[in-house]
Design a protein around this nucleic acid. Structure first.
Lengths: 240, 240
DNA sequence: CGCTAGACTAGTGTCGACACTAAGCCGAGT
DNA sequence: ACTCGGCTTAGTGTCGACACTAGTCTAGCG
């Protein structure tokens, strides 16, 4: 059905990592969860849309059991809403919920900044430098999609360096929730340039081992991302 | 089988709230998840113990489907470990993981403290005062179990007042992970008195609308709880 | 006597069928 | 014409059966 190119593979592997279903689940469950989850993030599946489990089962020529399991996973990550005996739906984000997520995310990213400054080795710094440099190129070329996933990957790497698995898990979960929003907000004029400038400044602070500054910049960058999301249409449309 | 008294009902309803399965799930799933989850928290089910799904299904005279679903819910909360094609087990907590959880929890509780100071109405304060007073009595009488659940309930109420559903969800999840530890650490001599003293001081700070102090005290109380856990046997036993 | 390889068993993941319910539909009554 | 109530049906939650696999036990070999 869909052409299998390089980019989708990158997206998929990143998504699978975020959902932490790499090791644990059966292939069929992973397949369904990835298709539905990426569909939601990329807007192919609209918020509030029904997710008919028999239809999904048919699409992946499996039974409803693994489909159900996949939907439950996505529900835990806040991408799907399931109520007993009712049809599962793609989650709707209220403006209030979005505010909440960014608020918590900002504070936790600050924490990550401090931890990264404490724990990063020289090799870690070199890798981060390389990644930021790549993102600069992507931003200059206006490759929104590639930049988006590079950004996701960068934050994953930073949480790794921070060395707190629990913290990483929470941020991954919040990241999934915000992805649907970030994806569109990055497309705003000037947003890409502003984002990459933030990333460069954050990296510099980390490089100079200035934990307070890194924390501050990360919090500010989160605020900026939040503002961009609020400006985008998506937040308004679903505010109900 | 088990005598249905007042106390178990309190525990169960609190646990159901924390797992957020009140509205969403079928009764059978809720029943299994509650029994297994509380079993883990109370130590009836030991860490590392196998959770045979057919046996559980038989025990609740249901099929394996709802049991599986319940176990998946508990897995998401970190109480159960499931690996593909392997038997589900009661989760094992490493010392490192415990450190991580308390680290994040401390920071987020600080955040809650600040938010509570900002948002609490006079009625909210009155209710908190009442709850703390009740906890003082329970602590004096050495009723560890009742105190424990009152504490859980108090923090639930505070996160409600803080008014950030996302933050509350994260803290609930962390609370579930730490419950198995807190439950035993509270039984240490002097720990109950220390804990209730912390709660009183925290409430006073909130009452005086001193957000910084409330945040500081909450962070400190978390550190104290963490230290108590480290002193308890459980943390050592599972350090592998 | 210890070790490896191969059968066995216990237990998982999946499937298709079934009962039951929520929500849409149609018709009757006001 | 509009509302309310029963009927229909699409779709969920559950079940028991089945295929397959991980872990175990045994027997043969070194």
């Amino acid at each position: 059905m869909e052409p299998v190119t390089e980019a989708p593979l990158r997206r998929e592997s990143e998504f699978v990592r975020l959902l932490k279903l790499s090791e644990r689940r059966e292939p069929s469950v992973v397949q369904v969860a990835t298709w539905v989850g990426l569909g939601i993030i990329e807007g192919r599946l609209a918020p509030g849309e029904d997710l008919n489990s028999v239809e999904l089962a048919h699409r992946f020529s499996s039974s409803r059991t693994p489909v159900r399991e996949a939907l439950m996973l996505l529900e835990q990550e806040g991408l799907v809403e399931m109520r007993a005996r009712r049809r599962p739906r793609v989650a709707m984000f209220t403006a209030r919920r979005i505010d909440e997520i960014y608020f918590v995310r900002g504070h936790l990213l600050s924490l990550v900044g401090r931890l990264v400054v404490q724990h990063a080795t020289e090799d870690d710094l070199a890798e981060l430098r390389k990644r930021v440099a790549e993102m600069v190129v992507l931003a200059k070329n206006g490759e929104v999609d590639a930049y988006f996933w590079a950004h996701v990957s960068l934050q994953e790497r930073m949480t790794d360096i921070a060395g707190n698995e629990t913290l990483k898990g929470i941020l991954d979960s919040l990241a999934l929730r915000t992805m649907i929003l970030r994806h569109t907000s990055l497309a705003q004029p000037g947003r890409l340039a502003a984002s990459v400038a933030d990333q460069e400044r954050i990296f510099e602070a980390i490089e100079q081992r200035d934990g307070d500054l890194a924390a501050l910049l990360l919090a500010r960058a989160t605020v900026a991302a939040h503002a961009a999301v609020e400006r985008s249409d998506l937040a308004r449309d679903q505010d109900s």
